[in-house]
């Protein structure tokens, strides 16, 4: 199985070129290559300017940051491939830990409380999807309103104050206090969702829905269901990322996440090679997109660039990566790739 898009079948082309050459060709053609290269080049650059870059504490820091963004980006990519967008996921990120906290305070064990939080978050996705599909309101508008709604709701139930989950250590470790566990979660989620995208019927129908909604519907694909399902997945992953961070930080903040983390997730998806127009995307790409954003942020901080300058550089970096990506995908298209 290749990493992205539709799988490349080997028997078709092995006749005229060697396996190694073909493998190399598929790597060059693959959508993720440019973003992985960018991550490597940036890491080398920052290591050379700030030797602390590859120190253990910094890598841990970077891992936390990239992991959270990557988990949210995985869900966002699914929604983007459908040709929709979810702006509310950052607010679900903030809401879910509170639901877990209050459910636990009401007397249920942490794992159950977590399940309740995930379930209710999936309901937010359901609402986003049903409004978008059945009332035919653009998802930009739908999720913009749920963004404000959920933000207000979280602030109301929390009274605007952070709370402490005080979860048992084993549970907290499993769900993210340990940097390694959070990174493992992010990588596992990215691999599972990439698999869903390229190798399952759900993924194929998701691509079909975003690629040609009318055509897919004419053939009998239930495009409405696909969209609603992916909105639910996106909210679910946003909630899960929020819960992981709540365990890690040891405090649940009603103002955590929000639009910043949502935009970071969308930026990761887009610089990773997902189209905003739908029909095409890669979750592994988004994972590395999150790494690149993390490296940029972290690297500039280490190099002593101020936060103000950082945002300017980040904006430029997104533009440049996009420019390079567009160029590369044109090259791929001309080269007869997928």
């Amino acid at each position: 199985m290749s990493i992205s898009g539709a799988p490349i079948q080997t028997e078709a082309t092995t006749t005229d070129k060697g396996l190694a050459a073909q493998f190399l060709g598929s790597i060059i053609r693959s959508r993720e290559t440019s973003i992985i290269l960018a991550a490597i080049i940036l890491s080398i650059y920052f290591q050379s300017t700030a030797p602390a870059f590859f120190s253990q504490s910094n890598v841990v820091n970077l891992g936390f940051y990239a992991a959270t963004t990557a988990i949210i980006a995985a869900g966002e990519v699914m929604v983007l491939i459908c040709g929709e967008v979810d702006l509310s996921v950052g607010q679900v990120y903030a809401l879910a830990p509170f639901i877990m906290f209050y459910a636990h305070r009401a007397g249920v064990p942490y794992l159950v409380a977590m399940a309740v939080a995930l379930l209710m978050s999936a309901c937010v996705g359901l609402i986003n999807g049903v409004i978008t599909v059945n009332l035919q309101i653009p998802s930009f508008i739908t999720t913009l309103s749920t963004l404000f709604l959920i933000n207000g709701f979280t602030l109301t139930i929390s009274g605007g104050f952070p709370v402490q989950p005080n979860a048992p250590a084993a549970l907290a470790n499993f769900f993210g206090v340990n940097a390694l566990s959070q990174v493992i979660w992010a990588v596992a989620i990215a691999i599972v969702f990439q698999f869903i995208l390229v190798k399952t019927r759900w993924g194929m129908h998701t691509i079909a829905t975003g690629g040609n909604a009318l055509g897919a519907a004419e053939v009998g694909v239930r495009t409405g269901r696909i969209k609603i399902g992916n909105f639910m997945l996106c909210s679910l992953l946003g909630a899960f990322a929020g819960i992981l961070d709540a365990f890690r930080i040891g405090s649940i903040d009603p103002l955590a996440g929000g639009t910043e983390i949502m935009f970071m997730a969308i930026a990761s998806a887009v610089i990773g090679g997902t189209l905003l127009t739908g029909g095409s995307g890669t979750i592994i790409g988004a994972l590395f997109g999150a790494v690149v954003l993390g490296v940029l942020k972290d690297g500039f901080t280490l190099s002593g660039v101020s936060a103000y300058t950082f945002d300017m550089i980040l904006g430029l970096a997104i533009l440049v990566t996009m420019f390079v990506n567009v160029r590369l995908s044109r090259l791929r298209a001309a080269g007869g790739g997928r």
């Binding site: 898009g5 539709a6 194929m204 691509i207 079909a208 040609n212 009318l214 055509g215 053939v219 095409s280």
Partner: peptide
């Protein structure tokens, strides 16, 4: 066979042929 062909540009040939009748 519709004029818009109901084909999905982003999918390959055989996946288009099996769209909604996928072999799993």
């Amino acid at each position: 066979v519709y004029q818009d062909l109901a084909l999905i540009n982003e999918l390959n040939v055989y996946r288009n042929m099996f769209l909604q009748r996928e072999i799993r």
